[in-house]
Design a protein around this nucleic acid. Structure first.
Lengths: 400, 400
DNA sequence: ATATTTAGTCCACAACGTAGACTAATTCGG
DNA sequence: CCGAATTAGTCTACGTTGTGGACTAAATAT
């Protein structure tokens, strides 16, 4: 709140409020919207008319029968007008997802590559081709793509869209935001943060959790009360460098005994003596575990313990309601989930009545790309009036 | 934003916005307020008139001369109308502070006690007497006390005003909020959180930092962008139980190797073989250090290292801009500040361009009580219209 | 002394939400 | 099968709030 409120801002807020209520209830009549929002029927009718005209909601022909009286006409969010593109650059794949305003995934494009062997601009070129093809297909079906989000494995300057340092890719100071150039607004963000948002909007749907993204590095995204916590500079969530043993093995970050040394992907690959540059290593590890290989099981035990130690520090500091394990921890969950939960429970038993439950992510490797798209859609829901303006502007400037 | 905006809400927000701008600029004319807020001169004039009538701002007789044209009349926040009471229960003292809307401290009452030897209700009775005396004095000078805040050393259920567990006091499930009964609204909060807010509003004035409160236990309050981060249940900031060495000495929390075992007050007192129940121990430690006692210096070194280790985990997780050391760490700062900063710097050097600076709190033991009062004042600034309503209601119900 | 400049107020007006009357569409009861 | 009751949605007069520009006030510059 650092802005004066005038009539237009009041209307914009109410418009957003109505749209949000429609979304969270699935579908609602004008009458029940009036009840839910506290606005009058008159006002709700006007606002709904605006949303209908903008194509953000549609009337479901179906009228709700049942009680007495005239049946109401329900409106729900329309999936046929607005969409967003979610992109992800990871070590071994590029992913593109087109998601509509109802959060339905309309298009999936994934390309397996090995980005550690490629130059940044080549990778960006590949992604551009993939994304433009997705954009064209989406627009072909009449969708208006309002923007794109890009997930990258490492800290990012969200303002400039520049990647500071993505050690897994070997990238430093790469201006992806400027280089990608898709013709729609682009927002670049850390993969762990976007995966957390993906989990929030497309997964279990809880509003308070710490998402743990296990990859070569280990990141975390904290969602509190439905909002991402980014810290003062946006570098929060570096779970991989939380201390497990202060004098432990040296980490590539320069410190010692960081979680990454115990529970990063390479720690598992070392255990099975398999470090092929292609990251199919996880499947090999799961195969070993399914065969009951004791060495790999011991590695899981150790990693799970270390993850539990680091997470108990995290829980003490940021008090998440739930822990959600994603990335490589999702397939490994049957073997590490228990140890993690036990370690956390053991360390926190006396401090709190109940330790946060440890759950597994349901989205797999899609989480970050979906979160990236979702973040764009969220800007539409937060200010539908801005979109209507853009639409009318475009119409004014269009062919006559 | 989960509320419809009507005309009254629009006005309330603009009123708050104007008051906030007046406060942050010290004093402003209506004309410059119009420029700063983006509202018209007309609207600003009306809003300022409301604030003047409520007594929240006053016109400074002084007109700003200098340039050409008619000089403007500046308004500033009035310290003579509204005040709040800040209270603190700690192990060895009770503190009461009366603070006016300009954040000037109008009254200080402190009582040295040993609350570990007393029953909760006796302590609350002592505090009630102290607080009522302060309230009476404040009201005697014409101040309207709009509420009180209470800081206690341990996690609190803010809704009910009940202390869950204050190990330093030996309290469990004490309903302080209900028991204190001062005749004004009371808000109970964790000491570390309020000390952080105290630092925010009465100290250095940065808007992004992690405040570390060293007492018998070690708490932390995280302020990001001027707002306190409380976690999902309000238990964030338990820095004292962040892992330093996972298999280290057993902690009273049931875990092992928690920071508290290395850098809590008792760790220092053990070092100088002085564990009198009265907490004058810190002064003894400082005396030892000033004489150059090597055992105590070694204890500082070890505590500082452990604090640095735990803080580097915290920095990786929540990305604070600055670290502020308070509580017992303030007097010990000359002996531990360096080690803490070096340990943090050593562990974070590669991860970020610059590690967060480590600073010392300037407020000493007042921080929490001031933060408690400040939190109440903040509710007034956030919604001055609510106060005006209360005032006019009172007038309506008053003698005629 | 007069022109210029800036502060603040006044007044007609526009934007938005409100309240309640009114119309529409359904179920219930006879 | 028809009228009463009930609920949905629209329409109209109105209240509140911010706007824009004219107007008055009070200073400095020439």
């Amino acid at each position: 709140m650092a802005q004066a409120v005038r009539h237009d801002a009041m209307r914009a807020r109410n418009l957003a409020f109505v749209l949000r209520e429609v979304r969270s209830h699935g579908s609602l009549t004008r009458a029940s919207l009036a009840e839910v929002t506290g606005l009058t029927k008159t006002t709700v009718s006007k606002l709904v008319a605006d949303l209908l005209e903008a194509g953000l909601v549609v009337e479901t022909g179906a009228v709700r029968a049942g009680e007495r009286g005239r049946p109401g006409v329900e409106v729900r969010v329309s999936g046929d007008r607005v969409a967003a593109v979610g992109l992800e650059i990871n070590v071994d794949y590029l992913a593109v997802r087109v998601v509509d305003l109802t959060r339905r995934v309309r298009l999936r494009l994934t390309q397996a590559v090995d980005n550690r062997l490629s130059k940044p601009m080549d990778v960006i070129g590949d992604l551009r081709r993939l994304a433009r093809s997705a954009l064209a297909q989406a627009e072909g079906t009449g969708l208006l793509v309002v923007g794109a989000g890009l997930a990258v494995p490492g800290p990012v300057d969200v303002e400039s869209g520049e990647i500071h340092n993505a050690p897994n890719l070997g990238w430093r100071n790469v201006p992806v935001g400027a280089a990608l150039d898709l013709g729609v607004p682009l927002r670049v963000e850390n993969e762990a943060n976007l995966a957390a948002l993906g989990e929030l909007w497309f997964g279990a749907g809880r509003a308070d959790f710490l998402y743990v993204s296990g990859e070569i590095g280990i990141g975390a995204g904290l969602v509190v009360n439905g909002a991402l916590f980014r810290g003062s500079r946006g570098f929060a969530g570096e779970l991989g460098h939380v201390v497990v043993t202060p004098e432990g093995p040296e980490c590539r970050c320069g410190a010692r005994g960081c979680l990454e040394q115990y529970a990063g992907q390479d720690a598992f690959l070392d255990a099975v003596a398999d470090r092929s540059p292609f990251a199919h290593g996880i499947e090999a590890i799961v195969a070993h575990l399914e065969q009951g290989d004791p060495t790999t099981e011991a590695a899981c035990e150790k990693a799970g313990w270390a993850l539990g130690v680091a997470l108990s520090s995290a829980i003490n500091l940021v008090d998440p309601h739930t822990i959600v394990l994603g990335g490589i921890y999702a397939p490994l969950f049957p073997w590490i989930g228990g140890v993690v939960a036990e370690t956390i429970g053991g360390r926190l038993a006396q401090m709190r009545a109940t330790a946060p439950p440890v759950e597994v992510s349901r989205l797999g490797s899609e989480a970050a790309a979906l979160g990236a798209a979702g973040q764009v859609l969220e800007t539409v829901v937060a200010d539908p009036a801005a979109l209507s303006e853009r639409l009318t502007d475009r119409r004014d400037l269009g062919p006559r």
